[in-house]
Write a protein that binds this DNA or RNA. Sequence first.
DNA 1: GACAATTATATTGTGCGCTATCTAATTGGA
DNA 2: TCCAATTAGATAGCGCACAATATAATTGTC
Lengths: 155, 155
Amino acid sequence: MTHSPVPASATPKLEEQLCFAVYLAGHAFNRMYRTVLADLGLTYPQYLVMLVLWECDGLSVKAVGERLMLDSGTLTPLLKRLEAAGLIRRERSRQDERQVRLHLTQAGEALREKSRCVPEAMGAAIAQSPEEIGHLAAQLKALREALLNAAADKS
Amino acid sequence: MTHSPVPASATPKLEEQLCFAVYLAGHAFNRMYRTVLADLGLTYPQYLVMLVLWECDGLSVKAVGERLMLDSGTLTPLLKRLEAAGLIRRERSRQDERQVRLHLTQAGEALREKSRCVPEAMGAAIAQSPEEIGHLAAQLKALREALLNAAADKS
DNA sequence: GACAATTATATTGTGCGCTATCTAATTGGA
DNA sequence: TCCAATTAGATAGCGCACAATATAATTGTC
């Protein structure tokens, strides 16, 4: 990358570079995940949903959304596609009919085995030590919290 | 964040945590930028395009795309909306009629002044030292390069 | 018990990012 | 010079993320 859209001259612009770096890193992860998840027939957000359900089947849409920080506007169509792909079954809860419970199908459960290669492929792609990875993740978490706090203050 | 969709137990899963952290940080930046850029009437990707053109007016779609790592599938509709908003003018190049040149309008140029508050607002939200910011950005850049290299190898 | 307030999910609308494809223009090689 | 190969940008299709809104169900208060 020879040029960045943000001038590197003045200190106040440094945070713009950080945002752009996050933006581009996200795109790069998407690119990589598309390749790695192609065999599973999943997109990354779908994979995240499956991860959550593999860990705890039968969660409500709300619970999954809380885990992934996604709202129903994003989740409902995504879940419909997972259902259409035969991986999950959506079921209105008897106890509280506002809720929809998400259940893995047999095909959905079986896909877990196939997904074991995903973190390994990602690890090979990233090619950094666990310390570096953990530290970077922690920094991004702190960054996210700072941003969400600031955004909440502004609204 | 009490739970993550990726189990924190095994080391090979650490990179999934990193990816999720990038994913969530990107969302948080989006949230923040939506607030900060509301007065300008721009989305973040539109803002990036304006940053590039403020720095160098008259670039081709391709040149802008190279700066932002975006292709014409993303850019063309985005540029059309900027044109519709009266901020830019798209003009077919006489020298090479395949090219479209992007020119700022007066309104587009005038918006630059208004945009000066953006990096300051972002800086206040991030609330970290320039050293920390710079280091994090450099790490993300390295991460991105590693991912893109690995994705290229896989295809 | 009645009803306002709240909650859960679905839907609508918009913008984005990417792959695949297309059209027109330009370049490169014979 | 001619034409195949390449390039630039547009378009189509799909999935995602989010704000706003709607509908139905549940909760909380009087």
